[in-house]
Design a binder for these strands. Structure first.
Length: 275
DNA sequence: GCGAATGTTCGCTT
DNA sequence: CAAGCGAACATTCG
């Protein structure tokens, strides 16, 4: 489900709902979703702690605890987090529940069980990503020159580069297609065939599109709770992702699906011409 | 029944 | 040796 905009939506809701709450019990029903430490050590260490606040880096959500310690959550493909009254109906595939002192629960559910949680020392959140995280989309260091340096000497497809969390953190398969559509660049274009103007355009569009989809997905805690964080409100604004075969909303040409970097991709053959 | 799905990591090849 | 690619993970949905 989630790329940076959807993780940011969850972060904002949880910040409002759970900051200052005390965690009374931790119930890990599917031990393998806790990556570090062991599920039992995780439960013991988190029990009794107070939630200090929520942060985010790329697609990783950080739940800061009082004193030292951060619970890091990655939702991968199908994970979702929600807050509910204890005893309220549970989403299928709920793998972890934290009961708060006020009678509510923080729940983590994930049908495919790809999502993971870690408990790390505060400041050590980066250790959850093996290959390291690149710049946030709004980092002032994200310039055309930066992208030329990181993409311009490689024959790797530009879409695979945008999805590389070690270059820019938080872009995934939906938003790389959206960014490249607005940039007029075909997803399979090798980085070393892009022009300086292409890199400048991408450097502007990455923060612009990620910000746009973040704000279009914004919800109240009540709206978020209606579907346990599973429904995204920004999907009506997608211009290419999931729309293969439909007309391009700029030129009317049928959008084309292909596979780039091992991922399904959609582009407009006219607005995004071959390099 | 088959194919594809919002992500990451690992292992093998080039 | 670094970069890049496909497979694996597990389940649902169209």
């Amino acid at each position: 489900m989630p790329e940076l905009p959807e993780v940011e939506t969850a972060r904002r809701v949880l910040e409002r709902e759970l900051s200052g709450s005390r965690i009374e019990t931790v119930d890990v029903r599917q031990p393998r979703i806790v990556a570090r430490p062991s599920a039992s050590a995780f439960g013991t260490a988190v029990t009794g702690r107070t939630v200090a606040g929520f942060g985010r880096r790329g697609k990783y959500l950080h739940m800061h605890l009082d004193g030292d310690g951060t619970v890091v959550v990655h939702l991968r493909m199908t994970g979702h987090l929600s807050v509910a009254e204890a005893g309220a109906p549970e989403a299928p595939h709920t793998h972890l529940c934290m009961a708060m002192a006020d009678g509510r629960e923080l729940r983590f559910a994930d049908p495919r069980r790809f999502g993971r949680l870690w408990l790390v020392a505060t400041g050590d959140e980066g250790s959850c990503c093996a290959s390291g995280l690149g710049l946030e989309p709004w980092d002032p260091r994200l310039t055309g020159g930066f992208l030329r340096e990181r993409l311009g000497r490689s024959s790797r497809a530009v879409k695979a580069c945008l999805n590389d969390q070690g270059i820019v953190a938080g872009i995934g398969n939906i938003y790389s297609d959206e960014i490249l559509f607005c940039a007029g660049i075909r997803p399979d274009t090798p980085g070393n065939l892009l022009s300086s103007a292409d890199f400048e355009r991408l450097a502007e569009l990455i923060p612009e599109r990620m910000g746009f989809f973040t704000e279009m997905n914004a919800v109240t805690p009540e709206e978020y709770a209606e579907d346990a964080g599973r429904r995204y409100r920004n999907t009506p604004y997608l211009r290419v992702y999931g729309r293969a075969g439909q007309p391009c909303d700029v030129c009317g040409t049928a959008l084309v699906r292909s596979v780039v970097g091992g991922r399904g991709s959609v582009h407009c053959p006219r607005c995004q011409p071959p390099a």
